[in-house]
Amino acid sequence: MPMLIAKELSVERSSQQVLKDVSLQLEQGEIHALLGGNGAGKSTTLLTFLGFLTPVSGSVHVQGRDVSEDVGAARRAIAYLPEGATLYAHLNAYENLRYFLSLAGTDTDRQVLDVALDRVALQAEAREMRMQTYSKGMRQKVAIAMAILREAPILLLDEPTSGLDPAAIDDFNRLVRDLAEGGRTILLVTHDVYGACHVADRIHLLHRGELVGTFDRPSDMDRIDTEAVHAAFATHAAA
């Protein structure tokens, strides 16, 4: 059974069409990346899977269920890492993790939290500090830890490597692959073509809400139309 399906998905925001006839399908253990410029519709796709946006046509399914029929089930099945690692500045890493995880119905003790924070390489001495003192990269690590700790079968990651240094990006990519090998299905949104090529099983190229290319890795990687990728980003920037 496919874990995520978008079928001829069209979405409007503020009367503007932001997705048009987008179709994609993720099987268990797969990593897909959505690439595109700003406003291409990448984050919109994730929000539609979470049921925050209602398609004007087409449908989205999570674990075989139409999201519009049971949005709660979809959200329970998904761990979502939003863009910008939005966590509470007045809480420390442990408090943030405990708060969001308890809302998701996941009880965790400190040892488990530390294991996750070790996996994302957050310094031990920073964990009890309020997040208002954190750098962007440190906040991103905590957000990634939270996505891991949710133990949801599906991960939707919006710009997960934003703010991370190159070494941390490498660590993250390894972590994502480990999670996929453990059976998690991962859809990530990124601007980072290089990172996506290294970590994703399949790359979807979005341009102004339309899917303009899909490339598999590693067999099709050589066939990636880099010209198209550049054109998608550049055209949008020009627009």
Partner: peptide, 14 residues
């Protein structure tokens, strides 16, 4: 404003 509403609701909170 602080973009914590989406992750909150994404935890299954209605």
């Amino acid at each position: 404003e602080e973009n914590t509403l989406v992750p909150l609701l994404a935890q299954g909170v209605t």
